[in-house]
């Protein structure tokens, strides 16, 4: 790992100022993704300063305010997974947090960090220690190596700026399905607009010096049920091949509201309003669930080596919706 300056910020204002003054600063919340990126030296520009938020105790909270669960940026995934408030008001988020990584990583990894993490494409992540860096299209190079190479875990919904690396966050689809809002030092961003493949190495719309302060999640009221499912090679310490999050409000046997979001299938979390619309107005039956699952995958454009993910995603959406009944 290359040496860098390390500063523990006392406030987000201070952290933002340090970032703005640095040439290529990085925020350390839990550090579990950042350390991997630094150790493998996957970025073209070396990080000159690491700004740690771990000294800012005020950023660690989960509380209910009106109809929302407010989660401070430094709240760990363990705290979210075990929070009775989150389990009651947004089970899919608690279960997504619980499905992430391993107990040790969840003890330090934060929700804010989880949604800001870098993608896991093995070309993008190719380590300096084994002959990297690969200057792939996401890092300003000309070509995506995954499209012509091994893309078994890559996007089945096309490329963004030629890159087919998927967003790897387990909590991202849950936040999108929940209609959460990401509150930064500058603005409030709906979760569905927070993720992008347009900004090169970053997987979010965050601008230079902008830091996530809080995540606001609507509290699912009476009758709302949500669920999260993850398919990965290993049960623990593994990134998803496909995830699915769904939330359904059934009123008097009829679906009144529904939202569905897939993860691990596209460059950004992949919600399907068409599929959700198909569920509204009737019972949450197996037949209607199957139609919704088909609709969610209708626009899929898998690559040669990942067609299996379409079937996998369809099956896991159906499973997730069935769990909401």
């Amino acid at each position: 790992m290359k040496p860098f300056n390390y500063i523990q910020a006392n406030s987000l204002v201070e952290a933002g100022a340090i970032l703005a003054a640095s040439s290529n600063g990085a925020i350390h919340s839990g550090g579990t993704d950042l350390m991997g990126c630094l150790r493998d030296r996957i970025w073209m520009d070396e990080v000159d300063v690491v700004v740690s938020l771990s000294g800012i105790a005020q950023l660690k909270y989960i509380r209910k305010e009106g109809d929302a669960i407010k989660i401070g940026a430094m709240t760990t995934l363990t705290e979210i997974a075990t929070s009775s408030l989150v389990r009651e008001g947004c089970l899919m988020l608690a279960d997504a947090a619980r499905a992430t990584a391993s107990p040790q990583l969840r003890n330090v990894g934060t929700l804010a960090g989880n949604i800001c993490q870098e993608n896991r494409c093995w070309y993008y992540r190719y380590s300096y220690r084994i002959g990297g860096i690969i200057e792939c299209v996401r890092k300003g190079g000309k070509k995506c190596l995954a499209v012509g190479g091994d893309h078994r875990y890559h996007s089945i919904f096309g490329a963004v700026k030629k890159c087919v690396a998927v967003n790897p966050s387990d909590t991202a689809p849950a936040l999108v399905a929940a209609g959460a809002t990401i509150i930064t030092t500058n603005r409030e961003i709906p979760a569905v607009e927070f993720f992008t493949g347009e900004n090169g190495k970053c997987s979010t719309v965050l601008e230079a010096g902008e830091i996530v302060r809080e995540i606001s999640v609507p509290f699912g009221g009476e009758g709302t049920k949500s669920a999260f499912k993850k398919v990965a090679l290993r049960k623990s310490i593994d990134f998803a091949i496909v995830t699915s999050a769904a939330s359904v409000l059934v009123d008097d046997g009829v679906v009144a509201r529904a939202s569905i979001c897939l993860g691990g299938v596209a460059v950004t979390p992949h919600p399907s309003s068409e599929a959700a619309a198909l569920l509204i107005g009737g019972p949450l039956s197996d037949e209607r669930i199957a139609k919704a699952a088909d609709a969610a995958l209708a626009g899929a454009k898998p690559l040669k080596g990942n067609r299996y993910k379409v079937k996998m995603a369809r099956a896991i959406i159906a499973d997730t919706l069935a769990e909401c009944s």
Partner: peptide, 11 residues
């Protein structure tokens, strides 16, 4: 429980 290999010493 945390991972010493992923924790910066200064943390």
């Amino acid at each position: 429980a945390v991972l010493a290999c992923m924790t910066l010493a200064l943390e």
